[in-house]
Design a protein around this nucleic acid. Structure first.
Length: 422
RNA sequence: GGAGAGGUAGCGAAGUUGGCCGUAACGCGCUCGACUCGAAAUCGAGUUAUCGGUUUGUCCCGAUACGUGGGUUCGAAUCCCACCCUCUCCGCCA
């Protein structure tokens, strides 16, 4: 959520941000709603002030043993009027709040203005795809041929966009989780095992709700949702808390299943591991001082990139332009891994600085000395999803005979196995 | 699922015959000061947030907030209803 005062005092700043994002939110609508809210609030508060004074007088008269009947009748009418106005004021307040909740974060000044994903500038390019002397295959062909993926059984067990992994594939996934988590622990992240279902308030804190409910899986009969990413429980770990400045920056990481309805993605990436309803992802979350958060974003991006470097997978990194950014983010880097089977780079990590947008929603603050608590900044980044990483490993490490080499750094995690053979 | 207890400031904890009890007793913590070479101990003072008006100066005025949401009443921390959460015991269970 953006700051109410910021909208009130520098509406032109927000108007520009919304235009750059191609958002349909209209600042003029906000002004109307807020003006109504303030007018009603002023009216009802004046009446309440009257009532409070009169009620005190009633109490005084009664203590003195005098009659207060004449006042009480008048006050009854006043209270009825207050009740009506209270409802109207509450409605006006909710309207303003709802507008704010539907409004995306303001892009950082360093974010390039652009229309969509075609205007995201590249900032890093690392490594180079191998030259293959045979026709490369896509990861689902390779994985299926090696007996590791079974998409048919998964669709029988559940439906489309699921996979059953067998043998080496299941183990490779476990190897990746351990490799990633160990790497993050070395960087100072604390490993967390959070709940995979969270309540509505938690989903609202990170910005998935109220706007994106159709993207989530909701539990029948409960107001609980399956997490679409560990960012949700990790960022909300400190919801409602005041952290000590000395505890910043603080980092958490977790490997969890992620559940996404992928509404609106019909027909996109229907094959393979790229777009599933359920996938495992290791997530990094940081809580940072506002003066330090953009430095922390660079650190986080480097963490994600270094994982690919250690896996010896070529990648590039782009900055998302204003038109392509996520709702809660002020600046986002996407790291894209090279998939030779698809002859393209595909997103494998997204690292975002959400500034105080989530902190304000979830009420996460920090205190320095005796100063008033202030909202801190939250960041999150993938590090990394196992499915897309496996796709990249299979496609980049495939060999002519149909076997796949295991990246050196993963061999110890695979019990010494160096090659997956048919 | 059953029975009981509870939810009040950063923390602990008073307050339940409805009305000078919410800048909320008392204690801890924190801030400033005194004492001290310095510190501890001790003593003194201070320390809620949000919204609105006014200012854009943390001054002043007003409103709201005692788990959440309703209700009764001129007036609710206090009475009534529903729900959420925590703790203890029992039952069931991976």
């Amino acid at each position: 959520m953006i700051d109410l005062r910021l909208v009130q005092k520098t509406p032109e700043l927000l108007a520009k941000a919304l235009a750059d994002r191609h958002s349909s939110q209209d600042v003029a609508v906000f002004h109307q709603l807020d003006e109504t809210r303030r007018r009603l609030l002023g009216e009802v508060e004046a009446l309440k002030s009257q009532r409070n004074a009169a009620s005190t007088e009633v109490a005084r008269l009664k203590r003195a043993g005098e009659s207060a009947e004449h006042m009480m009748e008048e006050l009854g009418k006043l209270s009825a009027r207050i009740k009506e106005l209270d409802v109207a004021t509450e409605d006006a307040k909710l309207a303003v709040e709802s507008w704010l909740m539907q409004t995306p974060n303001i892009p950082d000044v360093s974010v390039p203005v652009g229309r969509d994903e075609t205007e995201n500038p590249e900032v890093v390019r690392w490594g180079k795809g191998r030259d293959f002397d045979f026709s490369v295959r896509e990861h689902w062909e390779i994985g299926s041929a090696l007996g590791g993926f079974d998409f048919e059984r998964a669709s029988r067990l559940t439906g489309s966009r699921f996979v059953v992994m067998l043998g080496w594939a299941a183990r490779l996934e476990r190897a990746l989780v351990n490799f990633f988590l160990n790497a993050h622990m070395e960087e100072g992240y604390q490993e967390i095992a959070p709940p995979y279902m969270v309540n509505r308030a938690t989903m609202t804190g990170t910005g998935q709700l109220p706007k994106f409910e159709e993207d989530l899986f909701k539990l029948e009969g409960w107001d609980y949702f399956l997490i679409p990413t560990a960012e949700v429980p990790l960022t909300n770990m400190h919801a409602g808390e005041v952290l000590d400045e000395q505890d910043l920056p603080r980092g958490y990481c977790a490997a969890t299943p992620c559940f996404r309805s992928e509404a609106g993605a019909y027909g996109k990436d229907t094959k393979g591991l790229i777009r599933q309803h359920q996938f495992i992802k290791v997530e990094m979350v940081r809580f940072a001082h506002p003066d330090d958060s953009f430095t922390q974003l660079e650190n986080m991006r480097r963490h994600a990139e270094s994982l690919l470097e250690r896996l010896e997978l070529p990648y590039r990194t782009i900055v998302l332009c204003t038109g392509d950014m996520g709702f809660s983010s002020a600046k986002t880097y996407d790291v894209e891994v090279w998939l030779p089977g698809q002859n393209t780079y595909r997103e494998i990590s997204s690292c975002s600085n959400c500034t105080d947008f989530q902190a304000r929603r979830a009420n996460i603050r920090f205190r320095s000395g005796s100063a008033k608590p202030a909202f801190l900044h939250t960041l999150n980044g993938s590090g990394l999803p196992t499915g897309r990483t496996m796709a990249a490993v299979l496609e980049n490490y495939q060999q002519k005979d149909g076997s796949v080499r295991i990246p050196k750094v993963l061999v110890p995690y695979m019990g010494g196995q160096e090659v997956i053979e048919p």
